[in-house]
Computed example of a mutant assay.
Amino acid sequence: MVFVPLCMQCGLNSNACKVKVLGLTLGFVAFVVAGVIKWPLGAAVFFRHRKGRRIMAHLATVVYPRVTSAIPI
């Protein structure tokens, strides 16, 4: 059995369907892929340096919002 992430946001005025599916789903997938790389790296640096905290927060503050807002549907 394969898990396929599907994220949905209803009631938007940015497109004709008033539903956003593709951008949110691709944002989630990008978040997970980047997390596999960045979280172990950030965890190794987290306790000793401020840069580790920025690496850990980068996914939620930069990656997910940029991918989600780049695709309006």
Rank of each mutant, 00 (worst) to 15 (best):
residue 57 A to M: 12
residue 62 V to H: 13
residue 63 V to E: 09
residue 9 Q to P: 00
residue 19 V to W: 00
residue 69 S to Y: 08
residue 5 P to G: 09
residue 12 L to D: 01
residue 17 C to G: 04
residue 4 V to A: 10
residue 57 A to L: 13
residue 30 A to E: 07
residue 44 A to V: 12
residue 9 Q to E: 11
residue 61 T to C: 08
residue 7 C to S: 13
residue 15 N to W: 00
residue 46 F to C: 11
residue 41 L to I: 15
residue 5 P to N: 09
residue 67 V to N: 05
residue 71 I to N: 03
residue 22 L to Q: 09
residue 47 F to Y: 13
residue 21 V to L: 11
residue 29 V to F: 09
residue 45 V to K: 12
residue 62 V to L: 14
residue 28 F to V: 07
residue 49 H to N: 14
residue 51 K to F: 12
residue 71 I to W: 01
residue 45 V to Q: 07
residue 66 R to M: 14
residue 6 L to C: 03
residue 34 A to C: 15
residue 17 C to Q: 12
residue 65 P to W: 05
residue 6 L to H: 02
residue 20 K to H: 07
residue 25 T to F: 04
residue 8 M to D: 05
residue 73 I to T: 10
residue 54 R to K: 13
residue 10 C to L: 13
residue 27 G to E: 02
residue 47 F to H: 12
residue 13 N to G: 15
residue 8 M to F: 06
residue 58 H to R: 05
residue 18 K to L: 10
residue 36 V to N: 02
residue 73 I to S: 05
residue 18 K to M: 14
residue 38 K to C: 09
residue 70 A to S: 15
residue 56 M to I: 13
residue 58 H to N: 12
residue 58 H to E: 10
residue 13 N to S: 14
residue 29 V to K: 02
residue 20 K to S: 14
residue 66 R to D: 03
residue 69 S to Q: 12
residue 36 V to I: 15
residue 13 N to F: 02
residue 47 F to C: 15
residue 32 V to G: 02
residue 48 R to Q: 12
residue 13 N to W: 04
residue 26 L to S: 01
residue 68 T to A: 15
residue 45 V to A: 06
residue 15 N to V: 05
residue 61 T to L: 10
residue 31 F to G: 04
residue 23 G to Y: 01
residue 5 P to Q: 08
residue 54 R to G: 07
residue 11 G to Y: 06
residue 40 P to R: 01
residue 53 R to Y: 00
residue 68 T to V: 14
residue 54 R to Y: 10
residue 49 H to S: 15
residue 18 K to Q: 15
residue 7 C to M: 14
residue 11 G to I: 10
residue 59 L to S: 11
residue 53 R to I: 11
residue 65 P to V: 05
residue 22 L to I: 14
residue 59 L to R: 02
residue 6 L to I: 12
residue 58 H to L: 07
residue 59 L to Y: 00
residue 1 M to N: 00
residue 35 G to F: 05
residue 29 V to T: 06
residue 41 L to R: 12
residue 49 H to V: 08
residue 12 L to S: 08
residue 71 I to Y: 00
residue 23 G to F: 00
residue 29 V to G: 08
residue 57 A to K: 11
residue 35 G to D: 05
residue 23 G to L: 02
residue 20 K to T: 07
residue 33 V to R: 08
residue 27 G to F: 01
residue 67 V to W: 03
residue 66 R to W: 09
residue 55 I to N: 04
residue 21 V to K: 05
residue 35 G to N: 01
residue 37 I to Y: 13
residue 15 N to R: 06
residue 22 L to S: 02
residue 42 G to P: 06
residue 10 C to N: 08
residue 16 A to W: 05
residue 27 G to V: 08
residue 19 V to M: 13
residue 56 M to F: 06
residue 57 A to Y: 04
residue 37 I to K: 06
residue 34 A to E: 03
residue 48 R to T: 14
residue 39 W to E: 09
residue 20 K to D: 10
residue 65 P to M: 10
residue 1 M to S: 04
residue 34 A to F: 14
residue 14 S to V: 15
residue 42 G to F: 01
residue 30 A to S: 14
residue 19 V to G: 03
residue 63 V to F: 01
